[in-house]
Design a protein around this nucleic acid. Structure first.
Lengths: 221, 221
DNA sequence: TAAATAATATGAGATATCTCCTATTATTAT
DNA sequence: ATAATAATAGGAGATATCTCATATTATTTA
């Protein structure tokens, strides 16, 4: 992680709509950070210092369980706020956020302007909408995940994350995301391949029948 | 469902802190409703009319899946806002809320004061905190549920919902809540009974070993 | 460039959970 | 009070998913 300053810092601030969320001048309170691939933006248990707004890159939200199991809760893509929960409550970070590619985040120093933020109706309204959407998406995902077997959820996911009919995500990551074992994920891929719906190639999995994949995905609400 | 008016209406308004969430006089916009056991406060697909604040009673939040399966997402207990998501976004209700006992809700007519609400920093701050807590709880529940077998989650639930070491919830409801089949829930109860941890009586299940139950629950993060 | 680490792959057997079926007992509505 | 409906109960067999073990192949790091 490193601070970005000067000309480059200005670039990121001006090319993003960060100011539009606030009704006061936010510039005195912001810093721009660059995170390398694999860096942690936020670490479970650490003291919150910044409200982050990711403008470039890709990250993953994790939680660690007592039994050592790690759950990948979500993929985070810009533009997105991170650490807003800790802004609202006096708590340490309860989850980790790790980049999966080089990322740029605008950081708003919490200590310096928490009070201003929490009195700004414009910002709060935006934050409410953000939180409520998050809650909707989350709740949909949750009910889905408990009501359908992996085959259906995977079909939906393959359709969403493939490019030009090629799927090439990391199995280790995706098994975490779905909260299933690596082994079972592979089983399910093999199952889809056996049914002639996808095919394994050097490049990744090739979608052979979008219709059948869609039919499986459509069984989900 | 029936409107409560006059003296009784005043009672409910004054004995609750509803005014404290707003920085303007909310009284012109509110009505008090009484719902009988089993009534729907909110129905999936209906047009949002009120932001509800439940002050008495008990309710359940449901979603219906395409495949007909119904998931009990949560138990709602006062004081709690309901329909706040639909206040923030232009959407129909996406879930149903059904009372499980006679309930009293204060309803705030959305149409009449949506704009005032969304400009009130005091209310918005409270709503942000409410939404963020909801999100935290929800996310904890979600990751828990996908990382542990029913036995552990049930142990935790029995400890939480028993009174004087007697557990007596409806199996049908609880199997929905955990998103498992009724059959499997019974299996798991039988399993705990076989292990001598609980015992079935006419009154409900009696906890024989709080320690063992706690040990099972403690395996969860 | 060798060694270490992470990701992929697959077999075998165990466990958690599901569906379908069939009875019995409470509760609710006519 | 009777019929209808909802809740409880448990058997049997299927399926989804897990754990553990073991190789092979990429990718990263010293």
């Amino acid at each position: 992680m490193k601070r970005i300053e000067g000309q480059q810092q200005l670039y990121y601030i001006e090319h993003n709509t960060i100011q539009s969320f606030f009704s006061f001048d936010i510039s005195p309170y912001i810093e721009v950070f660059e995170f390398d691939k694999g860096d942690f933006i936020i670490q479970e248990g650490a003291e919150p210092e910044y409200l982050f707004y990711m403008v470039e890159g890709k990250a993953k939200l994790y939680v660690t369980h007592k039994n050592g199991k790690v759950s990948l809760i979500n993929f985070l893509t810009p533009p997105i706020f991170m650490g807003e929960i800790e802004l609202l409550n006096e708590e340490k970070y309860s989850k980790s956020i790790q980049t999966s590619s080089r990322s740029i985040c605008i950081g708003i120093a919490i200590e310096k302007c928490k009070e201003k933020l929490l009195a700004d109706a414009h910002f709060l309204k935006y934050l409410c909408i953000f939180l409520s959407n998050k809650s909707t998406v989350h709740s949909a995902k949750y009910t889905k995940h408990q009501a359908y077997p992996l085959e259906n959820k995977l079909a939906e996911f393959i359709l969403l994350s493939s490019h030009h009919d090629i799927y090439k995500e990391k199995h280790t990551e995706i098994s975490d995301y779905f909260g299933v074992s690596y082994r079972h994920l592979l089983h399910t891929f093999a199952q889809l391949a056996d049914a002639g719906i996808i095919e394994k190639t050097k490049m990744g999995y090739k979608i052979k029948s979008k219709e059948k994949l869609q039919a499986l995905a459509d069984e989900i609400k």
